Simulated scan of single mutants.
Amino acid sequence: MTTGPRVSIVVPVFDTDPGYLSEALASALAQTVPVDVVLVDDCSTSPATVAALEEIAATTSARLLRHEVNRGPGLALNTGIEALDTDYVFAMGSDDRVEPTYAALATEVLDERDDVSIVTTDIQCFGASDAVDSASGAPNGLVDMLFYNVVPGISVFRRRDWVEVGGFGDLRWFEDYDFWLRVLALGGVTVTLDAIQYHYRIHAAQATATTTWEDKLAQQLEIVRRNPDVWAAHLDVVMERLWRQQVELNYFTKRYGRINDVKKQAIDLVLALRARLRGHVRRG
């Protein structure tokens, strides 16, 4: 019977505020079941971050691994997972917080249901926002992932699936979407826990706040290029979605196009009237 940790938490770190980092690690180490915690320093340049990591490694049970060059979050996760040998794994943001029951609840689901590949949770934001992000997940498997990533990157998955799909890719953004697609292509589904188990810090310095839409689109297209079989296998679903959206677009274009014509006529009338009034004033 296994008596050691069955869940690992991998925390990629790059120049994280030491205060945020301490909060994150405290919550990771406070799980109600034994866990292995590994920090992967992705070549931080901040002396304060480096010092905080060394302090954590010296005073807690968390292990510290380092990259000599910055390789991105996906490859940092691979480095951490390679050093582990637990049944289940999840990634944690170095500036976030996790509920103490997350590992236990996810383990219970994964132990009981072989058809479940990923366990996820709704996310409570904190910091600059207190919104709740609902994780619809992929209860129907891969088909739920064709258009959007509906599985948060902090979800719990089976290490054996990570091995089978070859780990995370080298994408700088959306590395989790690419990974989930390949995992769910193995045939599993996801389950979303009833209670919120993760807290996501919103602040101006995080990568998601500084990424442009052009960059995000480029990464999404790269994911499609890397996984063409996913969309090819569901071409009927993709085309039906495209056609339905085209019908809706045509409907709204016709309906609101008339409204726009009326608005344009009203604006032109106001501009003409204003021009006439200005001319009248000047002549007076």
Rank of each mutant, 00 (worst) to 15 (best):
E82I: 05
E82W: 12
E82M: 10
A83I: 02
A83D: 14
L84T: 15
L84S: 15
L84Y: 01
L84P: 09
D85G: 14
D87M: 05
Y88N: 04
Y88W: 14
Y88K: 02
Y88I: 11
V89R: 13
V89S: 06
V89I: 15
F90V: 07
A91Y: 09
A91H: 06
M92R: 00
M92P: 00
M92W: 11
M92T: 08
M92F: 05
M92V: 10
G93T: 10
G93L: 13
S94M: 08
S94R: 03
S94A: 12
S94V: 09
D95W: 13
D95A: 07
D95S: 13
D95L: 02
D95E: 12
D96A: 07
R97E: 10
R97G: 04
R97V: 11
R97H: 08
V98E: 11
V98W: 10
V98Q: 03
E99Y: 12
E99K: 09
E99M: 11
E99I: 05
E99W: 12
E99T: 09
P100C: 09
P100E: 07
P100L: 13
T101Q: 12
Y102G: 01
Y102C: 01
Y102S: 02
A103G: 06
A103F: 08
A104V: 05
A104R: 03
L105F: 01
A106Q: 04
A106W: 00
T107D: 07
T107K: 09
T107W: 00
E108F: 08
E108V: 13
L110R: 00
L110V: 13
L110C: 08
L110S: 00
D111F: 02
D111C: 03
D111T: 01
D111E: 10
E112C: 00
E112F: 02
E112T: 02
D114K: 05
D115W: 09
D115Q: 11
V116I: 11
S117W: 01
S117E: 08
I118S: 03
I118F: 07
V119W: 02
V119A: 06
V119N: 02
T121M: 04
D122Y: 03
I123K: 09
I123F: 06
I123A: 03
Q124K: 15
C125G: 14
C125F: 07
C125D: 13
F126W: 15
F126N: 08
